[in-house]
């Protein structure tokens, strides 16, 4: 009930401005084109034998498209907290929400889910356009097979972003940090290049991010593997879900206590 109220409110505010929606989609596409075209220019084509050896997927546009779309959605809950909550803090609507008998956790996760859904809609469009531009072979079966893992990934991303929910209530100006972090994720999770070009320590570090595993599984499914063959990555992802939700919840509880002492977003 609370969830649907928040989602409806956010959707109305976003989709009320078609030009904004179009510009968001365009940002999504252009950013993708930059790197895929660059890769193709360097390769002199779309197929990389090296990429196939290191990741099992040799077609660069497909590789990049999957990673990119998942990356965009993965940072969405974080953005919801960092920008969405900040906006409400600045405007004073945040306190009006807190004042209601609804639980803060419900309100905040409602916000994150709204943004995740909005970005998912945008990314579905970007994905479809990407499929057309890069002539990516795609079957309904692959899409259906990918759905469960995509849903699991979304839940993991929500937990990952939740870590920021507590922080932003106290520190409303963490925007630039979040932006740097978002772009760092492109490196840590091997969105546009295979992770094996990174130092060993970095590869180990990358395991901490749900995006790394989500992208690996979906890419595996796209080259025709079954869930059994990518089970290791699936397990990682499933383990990370409770871990991030747990950490996020603890930080949030602490922040909630602090903010009732110091006031919301005052610092």
């Amino acid at each position: 009930m609370i969830l649907s109220a928040v989602v409806e409110k956010e959707f109305r505010m976003f989709f009320r401005y078609p030009l904004r929606v179009i510009s968001s989609i365009l940002v999504g596409i252009v950013f993708l084109l930059q790197f895929v075209f660059f890769g193709q220019a360097v390769l002199g084509g779309r197929y990389s034998a090296l990429l196939e050896v290191s990741t099992g997927m040799g077609d660069y546009p497909t590789y990049a498209l999957i990673g990119y779309v998942l990356w965009w959605v993965s940072v969405s809950p974080m953005e919801a907290y960092v920008w969405g909550v900040r906006r409400e803090l600045q405007r004073g609507t945040f306190e009006m929400n807190i004042l209601s008998p609804a639980k803060i956790v419900e309100l905040l996760s409602g916000l994150a889910i709204s943004w995740l859904l909005m970005d998912s809609v945008l990314m579905m469009i970007v994905f479809a356009i990407g499929v057309v531009i890069f002539a990516i072979p795609l079957t309904l079966l692959i899409i259906l097979k990918s759905l469960p893992i995509v849903v699991a990934s979304l839940i993991a991303f929500l937990g990952f972003g939740f870590v920021f929910a507590g922080l932003v209530m106290m520190l409303k100006n963490i925007g630039p940090f979040a932006q740097i972090f978002e772009f760092a994720m492109l490196f840590f999770s091997g969105v546009f290049f295979p992770l094996n070009v990174m130092p060993k320590a970095m590869i180990a570090f990358s395991k901490l991010f749900p995006l790394t595993h989500a992208a690996a599984v979906v890419r595996g499914l796209f080259v025709g593997k079954g869930y059994l063959e990518v089970w290791g990555e699936v397990a990682w992802l499933l383990v990370l879900i409770p871990v991030y939700w747990g950490i996020g919840y603890l930080i949030f509880k602490w922040a909630e206590r602090i903010t009732r002492v110091i006031g919301y977003g005052g610092y």
């Binding site: 009930m1 609370i2 649907s4 109220a5 928040v6 409806e8 409110k9 109305r12 505010m13 009320r16 600045q90 405007r91 004073g92 609507t93 306190e95 009006m96 929400n97 209601s100 008998p101 609804a102 309100l107």
Partner: peptide, 22 residues
């Protein structure tokens, strides 16, 4: 004056708050 959602209509604002007030 910033305690309401400016990008929603008056009706939509009340509808939202009605819901989060159960």
């Amino acid at each position: 004056e910033r305690t309401l959602y400016w990008r929603l209509s008056g009706y939509e604002n009340l509808k939202y708050f009605a819901r989060i007030y159960y």
